[in-house]
Design a protein around this nucleic acid. Structure first.
Lengths: 134, 134
DNA sequence: CTGTATCCCGAGGGATACTG
DNA sequence: CAGTATCCCTCGGGATACAG
């Protein structure tokens, strides 16, 4: 079964280490970089819709309530340019286009999981009962 | 050395489990909740500036290049309302005010670390050399 | 089916001046 | 020192219509 050296989190110390103690600015900027990959009103929903597997444009349109084709198209282009999503055109008639997460895209789940962990801890700690989202 | 059952990632299944398989919508929304806590142009920088320890208003102003008092004030109020930052007024003369991260605020580092991990992996995988931030 | 083109609007955020 | 008050403007994003 395919030996994999995945390791899940750097421990062998990567080439350039970024941490709060020695380079706080780089640290914040690095977080901001990751953030840029999925901010915007729809990117997170698109990624979420693609986690279960590839989808066509019209399927995404159906599965993401209230998004309009302009936004869907734009955000998909952004995500593709950023290497989160890959686009595959099937030369059938009529044409169909499939969108799928790249390995980087799928890898976002670990990050999302840790965000959810924080969110739940945060509620438990500081706002037992109250929710701050509009 | 203080036995700690920290575990870094939920495994004992918390009361309400949120995961992509069984409730994809809740999952995405939960990520969005965490996201809301530190979006906006300055929140991340403010949190970053406070990780090393408490700071006064004017110190933050100095340490965060190009922020203006209106924005600093507004973002600090948001962060306080969200339980990320706590504000403490010293009744000296002239008054001084100190801002400090709450436990939830400090706990964001785990989340940030996983975002940085993803960012570095992402670069290694899909954009050897190119950087997509304006 | 898979998008693009136009037009339009409101919120987020900058600059500057002012206050307790 | 620690903020508010005003004014202004950009830009993300909505609605609608059209195109290959």
């Amino acid at each position: 079964m395919m030996q994999q050296i995945e390791k899940r989190s750097h421990r062998e110390v990567p080439n350039e280490e970024i941490n709060m103690k020695t380079c706080p600015k780089q640290y914040v900027l690095a977080v901001g970089d990751a953030l840029n990959a999925f901010t915007g009103k729809w990117k997170l929903f698109i990624i979420g819709a693609l986690i279960p597997g590839k989808q066509r444009f019209s399927e995404l349109e159906k599965n993401i309530p209230k998004i309009n084709p302009r936004m869907l198209s734009k955000e998909l282009r952004d995500l593709e340019a950023n290497g989160i999503v890959k686009r595959k055109v099937n030369d059938s008639l009529p044409v169909s286009v499939e969108y799928e997460l790249t390995p980087s895209g799928y890898a976002m789940r670990l990050m999302f999981d840790s965000m959810i962990d924080w969110g739940m801890q945060h509620r438990a700690w500081s706002m037992p009962g109250k929710i701050t989202r509009q």
